[in-house]
């Protein structure tokens, strides 16, 4: 097992194209690449212990990239290694090393947080005792009162559900954590709770984190290095300081905010969706 938490190597993914029968054979890592390309020759490496940010507008391909790393999508070209394990051919060891928080919390909604965590802990090899011991500690650090963990998930607010989602993924002590817009749509208070928890964990544990967001303040607050994703391609990358230097052109660095950096390097605003409107939909939105 090598020590590089994540190597993304020239990954390409398209949707809506055809597929060949042989592309579902278990030993085939890659498959046909037609249709609309949403991840376009992406490569990067994440180092041990860092928080690596992927910043891009809605529709730029962030979640698709995260899903490929999480073994939930198969890339058309290229490959991903987690601590040296190939995400296609060695999916099971990869899965044991990672966990993921997605933008939508996704729980069994009539089960309590505790019942959900019991299940999602057990499938990672935790015992009921482990789950019951660790959960209250994590939830408390996230600012969720314990009794709420015994109510059905559907009684919890969006922010509270997202805190449980964060707890679910840290519960299994993953060595590589994938956080896909963990704070999008949260109230300011929950957002701060989640952000400071992520900071804490990264500093106190040996966790490596890949974080996607379109919130520049969050990126600056949390990330050691950042990559800008636009149209499925990585347009620029580096520490926040390095990114500023790229566009500074003589200006004092602290006078440049990250939104400006993003705009100058990608040619778009991070708030603007990249989502191509479906046929007919455009008229609906703009008409």
């Amino acid at each position: 097992m090598n020590q590089v938490p994540l190597q993304v190597n020239d990954v390409v993914k398209s949707f809506g194209g055809g597929w060949s029968a042989s592309s579902v054979l278990p030993w085939r890592r890659n498959g046909a690449s037609h249709g609309r390309r949403v991840v376009d020759h992406v490569s990067f490496e994440v180092r041990r212990g860092e928080i690596f940010g992927v910043i891009g507008a809605n529709g730029s391909g962030k979640s698709t990239l995260i899903r490929i790393i999480s073994t939930l999508l198969l890339a058309d070209e290229g490959g991903v290694r987690v601590f040296g394990y190939d995400t296609v051919r060695e999916a099971t060891p990869v899965r044991a090393l990672i966990n993921r928080v997605s933008a939508d919390p996704s729980f069994f909604r009539n089960m309590s947080a505790m019942e959900n965590l019991l299940f999602f802990g057990r499938v990672y090899g935790l015992t009921a005792g482990d789950v019951k011991r660790r959960t209250p500690v994590i939830l408390e650090r996230l600012g969720l009162e314990w009794p709420r963990a015994l109510e059905p998930m559907s009684h919890l607010s969006r922010g509270q559900q997202q805190k449980v989602a964060v707890a679910r993924s840290f519960l299994t002590s993953p060595v590589l954590m994938l956080l896909d817009e963990p704070t999008t749509g949260l109230d300011p208070r929950s957002k701060r709770d989640v952000q400071s928890f992520v900071r804490d964990v990264q500093q106190s544990h040996d966790a490596t984190i890949l974080l996607t967001t379109h919130d520049m303040d969050e990126a600056e607050l949390l990330c050691d290095r950042i990559a800008f994703l636009s149209g499925g391609r990585i347009v620029a990358g580096g520490s926040p300081l390095e990114l500023r230097q790229m566009v500074a052109d003589g200006r004092p660095l602290d006078s440049i905010n990250m939104e400006t950096v993003f705009m100058e390097l990608t040619g778009r605003r991070v708030e603007d969706d990249e989502e191509p409107a479906e046929e007919g939909e455009e008229a609906l939105i703009h008409g």
Partner: peptide, 22 residues
């Protein structure tokens, strides 16, 4: 990094049975 530990078969079976019961 320790080798990833995959949960045992009995534990996984039980995880699904317990979840469905809940």
């Amino acid at each position: 990094i320790a080798m990833p530990r995959a949960p045992g078969t009995a534990g996984v079976l039980w995880a699904f049975i317990e979840r469905q019961t809940n």
